[in-house]
Design a protein around this nucleic acid. Structure first.
Lengths: 145, 145
DNA sequence: TCGCAAAACTTCGCATGCGATCTATTTAAG
DNA sequence: CTTAAATAGATCGCATGCGAAGTTTTGCGA
């Protein structure tokens, strides 16, 4: 059958390129309609779905280290999308919660990204989309790497 | 069969997270052994495979816009990995070529990333790796998006 | 209880990438 | 041939992410 060996296929660079293109497109749409960046939208979704969360939890879900979370949340706080208050049970940690403006922006962003994900799925084919989703989920699972 | 609809699966955010994790890991390895970042390694591969290239061609292959290419190449020039000279046939454009140090760094980086890609493929399963590769290639093709 | 390691963030300096805008050159109209 | 439009990069200001190092708070072992 002469299948090309996966090793010859530069998955890493391909994923980088794909992520870059998608991020550029998503960012453009999100900024235009929801006044929010893609990175910020990810935080909005997380807080909308699971309620207020500590910085560390946000970083864990989004695969960001502490400095990245600090910066992202600071900018979102300045934009009045979230608030930050320290946990009375553990004064080291600060808890991030949605503002009303953040909730509203999240609603709009959700619609935009639902459409975008739909387009992506159509573009690569629905069956492939499921396969890619599962494969990347396996790849991203926490063990090792 | 009750397949989960692809729309419910946030492919965009998943690809972002995957790209982030992979980039972090690849960057760490590349810096340690080849003294080069992942973004720089991509340029080294391109020049090594296809010879000297203009800024625009680099941006096209790597899906980077002009400012990103300018910055990346400037840093690589400062690190003595590439040289930049203007094309005599078109003085607007500048042509980027590998230095000997760049060629050597590229050799090492190639080995590191070959191993890394192998690990990725093993992690998601060889068949899935091929499927993901094809799917992302379809996704990244230039038409529209 | 005291003291010290671990945990949770923050700060700093840097690389990366983007859109908007500018400059220099080339190309196309007229 | 002259000028307007297009093209190739560069510059600027910004958001995003990272590793290294610092700060405050917890928690735990002696």
């Amino acid at each position: 059958m002469a299948r090309v060996r996966a090793t010859d296929r530069r998955l890493f660079l391909l994923i980088e390129v794909a992520a870059r293109r998608l991020n550029r497109e998503a960012d453009m749409r999100l900024k235009a309609e929801a006044r929010v960046t893609a990175a910020q939208a990810a935080v909005l979704f997380l807080l909308k779905r699971r309620g207020e969360r500590r910085m560390g939890a946000i970083g864990e879900v989004l695969a960001l280290n502490p400095p990245a979370v600090t910066g992202l949340i600071s900018r979102m706080e300045a934009a009045n999308l979230v608030t930050r208050h320290s946990d009375p049970d553990d004064k080291r940690s600060s808890v991030v919660a949605l503002t009303e403006a953040g909730r509203q922006a999240g609603e709009i962003a959700e619609i935009i990204l639902r459409d975008f994900n739909q387009e992506i799925a159509e573009r690569i084919g629905p069956d492939s989309a499921d396969e890619v989703y599962d494969a990347l989920t396996r790849l991203v699972r926490d063990d090792e790497l």
